[in-house]
Amino acid sequence: MERGSDQVQRLEKELASLLDQTVGSDHVEITRDPTSLYRYLRARDWDVKAALDMIQDSILWRQRERPDQWTCKWCREKTGYHAMRQVGHDALGRAVFYSSFIQMTLTASSACAEDSVAHVVYLLEQAIRSMATIPNGSDSCVWVMDCTGMFLAACSPRVAYRVNQILSHHYPERLARILCVNSGYMMRGAFAAIKHFLAPRTAAKMRFMPVPITRESLLDEHMGDEMTEWLMEEIRLNAQRTIGDSQLRFWERPAATESVHDPRGSDGYVKQFIATYRGSLKGGDPKGVHHPHPNIIEAVTACK
């Protein structure tokens, strides 16, 4: 069913009425937000009672866990532990995440489900904030997964299962697409194993992009010109036989003599959310400020 249709609006109104009776004025970011009502209804195949139960579970989880206050302690303890980060927004206003196995300092021996869940939740909470501040912002995200340098422990079905549980239960329909770049037999094999516990709608969000990646294929996924150009260059640089320091230290602003490409994100994202980050925190940590990758924050706030 299409968002905004008479039938959907009727179901949203019915769900909102039930929430007023059971939840009241708590957690208005879910209970009074039509886009949230739509996402929960869609995730439960338009069953109002099931969507109500799901929202109530999410509210209890948010009260208990306070995910809006999470950070990634693993990245803070070991710089670059996770390379997955928000790098901008696409032509539809969706937040774009990029991850690289080459850039992360996570190793086979240190990989676990707990760190992955914490990092993804942090990124989602911050992406929601960023989308609320841009013109025509969306309510969903796209993950560009660069599989260059992939190793077995990093594509564990157990980790994928835990992350999927959190996303499907508490962030339904937030992840619009996963674009898998430079995928080989390892990633395709891992997806074949993971696919068995994914809902068909979730599994259908995976896209295996052409190898090598093309500009046209990214534009077809609504990346837009700026995001496409950034992704093409980032993917190219991370596929080199010798990776430059500015790429490996993706959380730092590259020196002018090294590169004109900024691995922290697209030009628009850097200007709006990274270059202005210190100023946005004056007077404390205002509610609603978008926080970039934890190590980007450390690098920016350490600058004189």
Rank of each mutant, 00 (worst) to 15 (best):
A43D: 14
L152C: 04
R215Y: 14
E216Y: 05
K73G: 03
P294V: 01
R64V: 07
K282R: 13
K78T: 15
V144I: 14
Q165Y: 12
S156A: 12
T133W: 07
Y185W: 01
A299F: 03
L15R: 05
K282D: 12
R3I: 11
F191P: 08
R236I: 00
D262S: 04
L41S: 05
C141Q: 12
S138M: 06
Q126G: 05
P200R: 13
V121Q: 14
A192E: 12
P135N: 08
C72V: 13
T31H: 06
R10F: 11
C303T: 15
S217R: 00
K78M: 08
G265V: 07
Y161I: 03
I297P: 05
Q126W: 01
D115P: 12
F101V: 01
H291A: 13
G244H: 00
L92M: 15
D57P: 06
I166K: 11
V181F: 00
S217I: 02
Q247N: 07
G189K: 06
R44E: 05
T148D: 00
F208R: 01
L248T: 14
A302T: 06
V48N: 09
Y40K: 05
A299R: 03
S17I: 04
R32F: 01
Q63S: 08
A154I: 01
V117S: 11
A43P: 01
Y161S: 09
E234C: 12
L167V: 03
R129V: 01
R207N: 06
K195A: 12
T35D: 02
K287S: 14
K287A: 15
M84H: 12
R278C: 15
H119G: 04
D139N: 13
P200M: 10
P135Y: 07
C75R: 07
A91C: 06
H169Q: 07
V144H: 06
S280I: 08
S116W: 13
V28N: 04
R62P: 02
Q69P: 00
I296D: 05
L123N: 11
D20E: 02
Q9I: 02
Y98W: 10
V48C: 09
A91R: 10
V181Q: 01
D146I: 01
N136Y: 14
A91F: 08
D6Y: 08
A127D: 02
K287R: 13
E252T: 11
P263R: 11
G184M: 00
H290E: 12
E114G: 15
R158S: 15
G4F: 07
M206L: 13
I30Q: 11
Y185P: 00
L179H: 03
V289Q: 03
L11H: 10
V181E: 03
V23Q: 04
Q272L: 13
Q247H: 08
S138V: 02
V142H: 03
S5V: 00
D225C: 05
I297H: 06
H169I: 00
H290N: 05
M223C: 09
R236C: 01
P172W: 11
D6T: 01
Q69T: 12
Y161N: 08
